[in-house]
Amino acid sequence: MASQGTKRSYEQMETDGERQNATEIRASVGKMIDGIGRFYIQMCTELKLSDYEGRLIQNSLTIERMVLSAFDERRNKYLEEHPSAGKDPKKTGGPIYKRVDRKWMRELVLYDKEEIRRIWRQANNGDDATAGLTHMMIWHSNLNDTTYQRTRALVRTGMDPRMCSLMQGSTLPRRSGAAGAAVKGVGTMVMELIRMIKRGINDRNFWRGENGRKTRSAYERMCNILKGKFQTAAQRAMMDQVRESRNPGNAEIEDLIFLARSALILRGSVAHKSCLPACVYGPAVASGYDFEKEGYSLVGIDPFKLLQNSQVYSLIRPNENPAHKSQLVWMACNSAAFEDLRVLSFIRGTKVSPRGKLSTRGVQIASNENMDAMESSTLELRSRYWAIRTRSGGNTNQQRASAGQISVQPAFSVQRNLPFDKPTIMAAFTGNTEGRTSDMRAEIIRMMEGAKPEEMSFQGRGVFELSDERAANPIVPSFDMSNEGSYFFGDNAEEYDN
């Protein structure tokens, strides 16, 4: 993207840094990872977990959730003011799984939030270390993106479920800051804005008074975040219109849905970061690795190297396929839920299948599930090659597409044709070009129609051997075009429920 120079890199967003050079960025990201790792080690000690239990991804998720809940100030305040039966607002906890007599047992633990905050700050040299908290939120978000298709949420806001490739980060909490905003897809931002506008339509006082002023500035800020994701002048001009509207209503909703559809071809720039579970960072720190000293990046080879040398386990339900569970977590670790499966298959070195073909449910185990038949197995999170994460949407291309997802959002900077089903997408653009945004709409449609099938995206960008740390010898991959490109292809993934 041309304006790259004016933006802070995501590592800076990730670490609240002012302008830093590459070495400083690597050190501050490393410091953040160190903090998460030290916190995780301490929690495993508190909970008396064995090494194996500490490497269980379900335990990692519970521990991450506990610290996120302990620092969720708004919710904590709300819980104190609106006490609900049987919930102690000062405590947080969740299921911890232990191996007892050759069987997995679930144990519900409860801790004072104050105590968890103390352990977290102690692991982070006394700081609140917001960057580390956001990092864990993005890992949870990436896992949700890989596990669930947001059909219901899309339909509720009037969008087409086939636009799911635009929904990265749709389950990120509001408090995820600049680093969170960077990884949100165009569809996620559109959905947040539509929800806001709908509230304004239904509630006369939404934009009024002292609160209304705050609401208005939040609305304009979200519009600017979305505008910054678009790469064409016409899309940005249309966002200006939406932002400046005196009284946002149905016309703005129409414009936003139009823009979301246009992003299936004229893709937005959305950041991709490899955020790993805390149970990967903990053992690495415990083994003596100093992330701050060595430096770390979320968008280069580092996460690949770390996963190459990590042992992570997962509980497996009786009829689940461990290899499929591994694929789910591998995609989440690489922030690749909406990437082209052919690119992923090449990088991973084994075939990556669409969601609907995987015999696996989510990673988390519900409290009512029976533990008797639970097994555990090693997650295979290694890769054959590594590639640089991208934040450009890439230019655009036609490809055989599917009944489910009709476009992709690249996660890796790797040369390819970008699949999208042009006739299906263009069919949504018939007729409606009147109104105050008509010239911009016409211009956007013209650009979409001009998108050429034979153009290559990320020209000359390749993948790298894991021994090639400096990215000196790019390998331009070859793809098996007979395979499906979309992950949520004609899909039956479970729906995400809060």
Rank of each mutant, 00 (worst) to 15 (best):
residue 387 A to D: 04
residue 279 C to H: 03
residue 208 R to Y: 06
residue 416 R to S: 08
residue 451 A to M: 06
residue 94 G to N: 11
residue 239 M to N: 02
residue 440 M to A: 14
residue 230 F to A: 10
residue 19 R to P: 02
residue 340 D to S: 15
residue 456 M to F: 00
residue 263 A to D: 03
residue 126 G to Q: 10
residue 300 G to M: 10
residue 197 I to T: 15
residue 382 R to L: 09
residue 53 E to L: 04
residue 223 C to R: 03
residue 42 Q to A: 10
residue 266 L to F: 04
residue 161 P to A: 15
residue 399 Q to T: 10
residue 473 N to W: 12
residue 423 P to N: 04
residue 448 M to T: 14
residue 382 R to K: 12
residue 112 D to S: 03
residue 464 F to A: 08
residue 353 S to Y: 02
residue 50 S to C: 07
residue 141 S to T: 11
residue 129 A to N: 08
residue 159 M to E: 02
residue 215 T to A: 14
residue 411 A to Q: 01
residue 295 G to C: 10
residue 304 F to Y: 08
residue 386 W to P: 04
residue 428 A to F: 14
residue 279 C to T: 09
residue 174 R to T: 12
residue 418 L to G: 00
residue 282 G to M: 10
residue 330 W to K: 10
residue 189 M to N: 02
residue 83 P to N: 13
residue 434 E to H: 11
residue 46 E to A: 03
residue 446 R to Y: 00
residue 168 Q to N: 08
residue 95 P to F: 02
residue 196 M to R: 04
residue 265 I to H: 02
residue 328 L to V: 13
residue 324 H to V: 05
residue 423 P to C: 08
residue 127 D to I: 10
residue 448 M to Y: 02
residue 426 M to P: 01
residue 103 K to Y: 01
residue 455 E to Q: 15
residue 308 Q to V: 11
residue 168 Q to M: 12
residue 451 A to N: 14
residue 430 T to G: 15
residue 209 G to C: 06
residue 388 I to W: 04
residue 338 F to G: 12
residue 302 D to K: 09
residue 467 S to I: 13
residue 468 D to Y: 00
residue 22 A to M: 00
residue 229 K to Q: 12
residue 37 G to T: 04
residue 211 N to S: 11
residue 414 V to M: 15
residue 276 L to T: 04
residue 285 V to R: 05
residue 294 E to S: 12
residue 264 L to F: 15
residue 342 R to W: 06
residue 2 A to M: 11
residue 147 T to R: 04
residue 42 Q to N: 03
residue 184 K to R: 09
residue 61 L to S: 13
residue 20 Q to L: 03
residue 362 G to A: 09
residue 446 R to P: 00
residue 148 Y to N: 10
residue 99 R to M: 04
residue 89 P to A: 15
residue 188 T to C: 06
residue 193 L to H: 00
residue 187 G to L: 07
residue 462 G to N: 10
residue 190 V to H: 05
residue 19 R to F: 12
residue 396 T to K: 09
residue 385 Y to G: 03
residue 435 G to N: 08
residue 203 D to K: 14
residue 433 T to Q: 08
residue 276 L to W: 01
residue 78 Y to R: 08
residue 339 E to I: 02
residue 429 F to A: 01
residue 155 V to S: 14
residue 91 K to C: 11
residue 476 V to S: 00
residue 308 Q to D: 03
residue 76 N to D: 01
residue 355 R to S: 08
residue 457 S to I: 01
residue 460 G to C: 13
residue 258 F to T: 02
residue 131 A to T: 04
residue 370 N to A: 15
residue 496 Y to N: 08
residue 313 Y to E: 04
residue 366 A to E: 10
residue 193 L to F: 05
residue 147 T to N: 11
residue 239 M to Q: 05
residue 167 M to G: 13
residue 323 A to L: 14
residue 95 P to Q: 08
residue 187 G to E: 05
residue 148 Y to W: 05
residue 493 A to N: 14
residue 73 E to C: 06
residue 74 R to I: 02
residue 442 A to V: 14
residue 14 E to Y: 03
residue 203 D to Y: 07
residue 212 G to V: 01
residue 386 W to S: 07
residue 8 R to V: 00
residue 418 L to K: 00
residue 274 S to A: 04
residue 408 V to M: 15
residue 448 M to C: 01
residue 299 V to T: 06
residue 56 L to N: 15
residue 412 F to G: 01
residue 494 E to G: 06
residue 139 W to I: 11
residue 68 L to I: 15
residue 14 E to M: 06
residue 72 D to P: 02
residue 343 V to N: 01
residue 400 R to L: 02
residue 472 A to W: 13
residue 384 R to D: 00
residue 457 S to E: 03
residue 357 K to A: 08
residue 121 R to E: 03
residue 346 F to G: 11
residue 84 S to Y: 00
residue 467 S to L: 15
residue 27 A to I: 04
residue 111 Y to F: 14
residue 362 G to Y: 04
residue 243 R to I: 08
residue 369 E to H: 15
residue 113 K to H: 10
residue 105 M to R: 08
residue 217 S to A: 14
residue 474 P to E: 00
residue 496 Y to S: 09
residue 125 N to H: 07
residue 336 A to F: 00
residue 453 P to I: 03
residue 276 L to Y: 02
residue 259 L to I: 13
residue 419 P to E: 11
residue 156 R to Y: 08
residue 25 I to Y: 00
residue 325 K to P: 05
residue 165 S to H: 02
residue 267 R to M: 03
residue 218 A to C: 12
residue 259 L to Y: 01
residue 348 R to P: 09
residue 63 I to L: 14
residue 260 A to D: 12
residue 147 T to E: 08
residue 69 S to N: 12
residue 468 D to L: 01
residue 464 F to D: 04
residue 86 G to H: 15
residue 166 L to A: 07
residue 93 G to T: 10
residue 161 P to K: 09
residue 166 L to E: 14
residue 256 L to A: 14
residue 370 N to P: 13
residue 7 K to L: 00
residue 288 G to R: 15
residue 498 N to W: 01
residue 380 E to A: 08
residue 271 A to C: 06
residue 251 A to P: 01
residue 52 Y to E: 13
residue 347 I to T: 09
residue 106 R to P: 04
residue 97 Y to H: 08
residue 190 V to Q: 07
residue 101 D to S: 09
residue 431 G to W: 04
residue 249 G to A: 10
residue 253 I to H: 07
residue 441 R to K: 09
residue 53 E to Y: 15
residue 452 K to L: 09
residue 118 R to Y: 11
residue 254 E to Y: 09
residue 482 S to L: 00
residue 31 K to G: 14
residue 116 I to D: 05
residue 422 K to G: 14
residue 425 I to S: 02
residue 374 M to D: 09
residue 211 N to G: 12
residue 256 L to T: 13
residue 43 M to P: 02
residue 147 T to K: 06
residue 119 I to Y: 09
residue 141 S to Y: 08
residue 463 V to R: 06
residue 161 P to M: 02
residue 6 T to W: 06
residue 120 W to A: 08
residue 193 L to E: 11
residue 169 G to Y: 04
residue 420 F to P: 00
residue 15 T to Y: 02
residue 454 E to A: 14
residue 416 R to P: 03
residue 494 E to I: 12
residue 109 V to G: 07
residue 110 L to N: 04
residue 174 R to G: 08
residue 331 M to G: 04
residue 446 R to F: 00
residue 114 E to F: 13
residue 58 Q to T: 05
residue 297 S to R: 02
residue 490 G to P: 01
residue 24 E to D: 05
residue 414 V to D: 00
residue 397 N to Q: 05
residue 280 V to F: 02
residue 480 D to S: 14
residue 192 E to Y: 14
residue 163 M to F: 09
residue 269 S to K: 07
residue 286 A to R: 10
residue 450 G to S: 11
residue 13 M to N: 10
residue 471 A to P: 00
residue 125 N to V: 11
residue 249 G to V: 08
residue 41 I to D: 10
residue 281 Y to D: 05
residue 190 V to G: 15
residue 109 V to P: 04
residue 329 V to T: 04
residue 152 R to S: 07
residue 266 L to W: 11
residue 461 R to H: 05
residue 417 N to K: 14
residue 49 L to K: 01
residue 74 R to H: 05
residue 298 L to S: 10
residue 171 T to P: 02
residue 361 R to G: 08
residue 430 T to W: 06
residue 283 P to G: 15
residue 67 V to E: 11
residue 360 T to C: 15
residue 6 T to S: 00
residue 130 T to A: 05
residue 294 E to C: 12
residue 447 M to C: 10
residue 423 P to D: 08
residue 463 V to N: 01
residue 226 L to G: 10
residue 264 L to H: 11
residue 373 A to C: 08
residue 373 A to I: 04
residue 1 M to A: 08
residue 139 W to D: 05
residue 401 A to R: 15
residue 428 A to L: 03
residue 170 S to G: 09
residue 225 I to K: 05
residue 7 K to D: 02
residue 404 G to N: 08
residue 62 T to R: 08
residue 21 N to F: 00
residue 416 R to K: 14
residue 178 A to N: 14
residue 25 I to T: 00
residue 474 P to K: 01
residue 171 T to Q: 08
residue 119 I to F: 05
residue 249 G to R: 12
residue 478 S to K: 09
residue 354 P to M: 03
residue 159 M to P: 02
residue 35 G to V: 06
residue 119 I to T: 11
residue 16 D to E: 14
residue 223 C to I: 07
residue 458 F to G: 01
residue 123 A to D: 03
residue 410 P to D: 00
residue 356 G to W: 12
residue 48 K to T: 14
residue 40 Y to S: 02
residue 214 K to G: 06
residue 344 L to E: 08
residue 296 Y to C: 10
residue 416 R to M: 07
residue 362 G to Q: 07
residue 258 F to K: 11
residue 334 N to K: 02
residue 420 F to Q: 06
residue 347 I to E: 02
residue 389 R to K: 15
residue 406 I to R: 07
residue 172 L to Q: 14
residue 84 S to N: 15
residue 275 C to N: 13
residue 476 V to Q: 02
residue 390 T to S: 14
residue 351 K to Q: 13
residue 347 I to R: 08
residue 482 S to C: 05
residue 236 R to W: 07
residue 375 E to P: 03
residue 47 L to W: 02
residue 401 A to V: 01
residue 197 I to A: 15
residue 296 Y to R: 06
residue 305 K to G: 11
residue 406 I to P: 05
residue 473 N to M: 14
residue 11 E to Y: 05
residue 102 R to V: 02
residue 408 V to W: 02
residue 168 Q to G: 04
residue 75 R to C: 09
residue 255 D to P: 10
residue 436 R to W: 07
residue 289 Y to P: 02
residue 330 W to R: 04
residue 51 D to M: 10
residue 215 T to G: 12
residue 437 T to K: 10
residue 323 A to N: 13
residue 273 K to Q: 07
residue 144 N to Y: 06
residue 240 D to A: 13
residue 273 K to E: 05
residue 487 Y to R: 07
residue 402 S to H: 15
residue 196 M to D: 06
residue 71 F to R: 13
residue 305 K to H: 10
residue 418 L to V: 15
residue 94 G to A: 03
residue 176 S to N: 01
residue 177 G to W: 04
residue 93 G to P: 12
residue 394 G to D: 09
residue 361 R to P: 02
residue 300 G to A: 09
residue 357 K to N: 14
residue 353 S to M: 14
residue 227 K to E: 10
residue 181 A to Q: 15
residue 62 T to C: 09
residue 179 A to F: 10
residue 464 F to T: 08
residue 450 G to D: 04
residue 286 A to F: 04
residue 382 R to Q: 04
residue 121 R to V: 07
residue 149 Q to N: 04
residue 404 G to E: 02
residue 384 R to A: 10
